[in-house]
Design a protein around this nucleic acid. Structure first.
Lengths: 217, 217
DNA sequence: AATATTTTGGACAGTATTGTCCAATTGGTC
DNA sequence: GACCAATTGGACAATACTGTCCAAAATATT
């Protein structure tokens, strides 16, 4: 479980020593912070999981607060990038709306909600948001601030094209996301990965109900 | 905010001194555990907030693990009782379905989701569920295990009476709850109390969408 | 008013953590 | 092969927390 550093940073692999250790630390830190919370996460545990000495952690990332901030910033970026990559697959001129929206939903769940980045970020925000208001604000800016409007815009597009019957796209977007997450909190927040067929079922059921509410009749 | 002890434990009120201090400790512990997480919550902070010496905490509740278990058990009970009290107000033979279901939704949000007990419990489960599998199991038994089926049964009743068009009541119940919680996670998990008119709006929007999906047409 | 019980505040050992310093070692570079 | 930067492991002081003990004080009971 030592993390394969090469697979993570797809950039220049010419400087493996410094970068790869730094990445290993960041990955380990993300895990430990998410599992134990900020206060209970020990630098030793992070160093051990990264396969690195404690001193190296301090050399590369500074103190615990800074390490935490860097981790959050990195994961926020990755998660945001993942989301907008998936968003490109949103159906614009579907021939079979339910089928295509279901496929998009499954993709969104898999790549931007169930994936480790999204999970850890959400859990961190829930766990530490109260004590790191700055973190909470940052997350809100990237999460609800950018993602929901983006979804709303796509839904509005579909509505305008006559595929959907929506009065308030922003509300529809929030409810769409809520329906997608229906069965997520229960099993997932614990850390267990969600099985593939579960994801498909969730996407199918959420999309079906969403279209019953907002589909053209 | 010192808790009115009489209202809480409905048993023998002949011993106010011991019981009231014990209650103060339990309430303070619930707050601190929820705010800081189990690991970062210090007994000193709990004692201080309860207005009690640290020793008294140990005298009354034993060590930190036991204190935590008692707190969770107590809040679980209270939360469950609140929920089923609200459930009695579920409309069975409505004349105006949307109006009555909206009122019930608002009540449910107010008394069983937004209220401190429900909030703290959810946050504790999310925060500590991984490290206290037993707590997680207990919560699952009381939460999804009892509440969702209860909601499903009521919805099935309405469907059978011709008010709704539902194939899978269990799924409809989960989606109903998900819709209710649409805007909850964003603002609420931080600890801010949700304003009254917000709750009403959420109940109205969730119910409207739910009925668009599952109402008889 | 006298007595029993609870509570208090402080001291205490044991443990864990953070963040720093440094000498020795490693690994890659010229 | 020699050099240089990064890494290591360990020692270290400072701090914080748990859980226990105890004598003094406050509170309730008789």
């Amino acid at each position: 479980m030592k993390t394969s550093p090469a697979a993570v940073s797809s950039e220049t692999e010419s400087c493996p020593p410094a970068t790869s250790k730094r990445q290993a630390i960041l990955n380990a830190a993300a895990d430990v912070f998410a599992e134990d919370g900020f206060a209970a996460a020990s630098i030793d545990a992070i160093a051990a999981r990264a396969g690195v000495s404690r001193q190296t952690v301090y050399n590369q990332l500074g103190d615990k607060d800074n390490l935490f901030k860097v981790v959050v910033a990195e994961i926020t970026d990755k998660s945001s990038a993942d989301f907008f990559r998936v968003l490109d697959r949103f159906p614009v001129a579907p021939t079979d709306l339910e089928k295509e929206l279901t496929e998009f939903s499954a993709l969104l769940l898999r790549k931007a909600v169930c994936d480790p980045n999204g999970r850890w970020l959400r859990k961190l925000v829930e766990t530490e948001g109260g004590r790191f208001p700055e973190l909470f604000e940052t997350w809100k800016e990237y999460g609800p601030g950018k993602k929901y409007p983006a979804i709303a815009a796509r839904l509005a597009q579909l509505a305008l094209a006559g595929y959907l019957d929506i009065e308030d796209p922003a509300l529809a977007a929030r409810q769409y996301m809520a329906l997608l997450a229906t069965d997520l909190r229960i099993n997932q927040q614990i850390g267990r990965p969600t099985p593939e067929e579960e994801v498909d079922r969730m996407a199918r059921e959420a999309t079906k109900t969403f279209l019953r509410a907002f589909g053209k009749r």
